[in-house]
């Protein structure tokens, strides 16, 4: 099921969609599934399952820490697919967010087939650009998977058009120049980027990087179709005293963010 279904439902309810990210395998494979299900129960509309990778150059310290721990515990691509299967079974569109090399190594065709079989909606690829995506786009299309690429404040209008043309499901707009992590403010650049992106596409545009609380979610919901939150959820798990505590904290945060995207700030 394409993520666009969840965005359409949110739009019909005159609100933005809430997109939640966690890396697979943290605090354990089963533990991450528990947390993701709690996030879905509390109102997350679209799930991103991160594929833990040894060289996550788009990620800040919070996600790096969780991913390193997941890798040390042996999390691998098969675990990611199992996580997707468990979360997609809730009926929530579930995408994988992955750097390119693990998919390249697994085999793009095999990965797209196995992801589709697991009920996955598609893949967000932060380190490939449509210009260099000829190894990915045809196989993703053949399995009818969402292909989500990123646009950034530094993108030219021409590059935004090229990128949205290759996107299916939604477009990921990076709110600021930088890596993942919570920030006190979501930059003004985000609203401008969303406006520029909308001129090129009818796809939903979701904003990520830096959003961590309900007020920021409400602010972003004013100008975007979706609000993406990652590091703030991971932070809940890093700070938790026990796996159960992490599930509870992430669920609470999801509830707050979910009310945020329903509020007109």
């Amino acid at each position: 099921m394409s993520a666009s279904v969840a965005f359409e439902r949110a739009r019909s309810e005159e609100r933005a969609a809430l997109v939640g990210y966690l890396p697979a395998g943290y605090p354990s494979v089963a533990g991450a599934v528990d947390v993701l299900k709690a996030m879905v129960d509390a109102g997350v509309d679209v799930v991103e399952v991160g594929l833990p990778y040894s060289d996550p150059l788009m990620d800040g310290p919070v996600i790096q820490t969780a991913v390193e721990a997941a890798l040390r515990a042996g999390a691998n691509t098969t675990d990611v697919l199992r996580t997707v299967e468990a979360v997609a079974a809730t009926g929530t569109p579930t995408l994988v967010m992955s750097y390119w090399n693990p998919i390249d190594r697994y085999g793009p065709e095999r990965f797209s087939r196995d992801l589709a079989a697991a009920g996955g909606a598609g893949v967000i690829t932060p380190d490939i650009i449509p210009d260099d995506a000829e190894e990915w786009l045809p196989v993703a299309r053949s399995q009818d998977l969402d292909t989500v690429f990123l646009v950034a404040p530094s993108s030219t209008d021409k590059r935004i058009a090229l990128t949205t043309e290759a996107c299916r499901g939604f477009v990921y707009a990076a709110s600021t120049m930088g890596v993942t992590g919570t920030r006190d403010q979501v930059g003004d650049a985000a609203a401008d980027l969303v406006a520029r992106t909308r001129k090129t596409t009818a796809l939903p545009v979701a904003v990520g990087l830096g959003v961590s609380n309900a007020d920021q979610a409400a602010e972003v919901a004013n100008f975007a179709d979706g609000v993406i939150v990652g590091s703030a959820f991971v932070r809940c798990l890093l700070d938790a005293d026990s796996p159960a505590d992490g599930v509870r904290a992430a669920g609470e945060l999801a509830g707050q963010l979910s009310s945020g995207v329903r509020r007109q700030a």
């Binding site: 150059l57 788009m58 390119w100 932060p126 380190d127 490939i128 650009i129 210009d131 260099d132 690429f149 990123l150 646009v151 950034a152 404040p153 530094s154 993108s155 030219t156 590059r159 990128t163 990076a174 120049m177 930088g178």
Partner: peptide, 12 residues
Amino acid sequence: GGRYVPEALIAA
């Protein structure tokens, strides 16, 4: 070769 990097770096 190629460019397997975040879009944010393409302009630079």
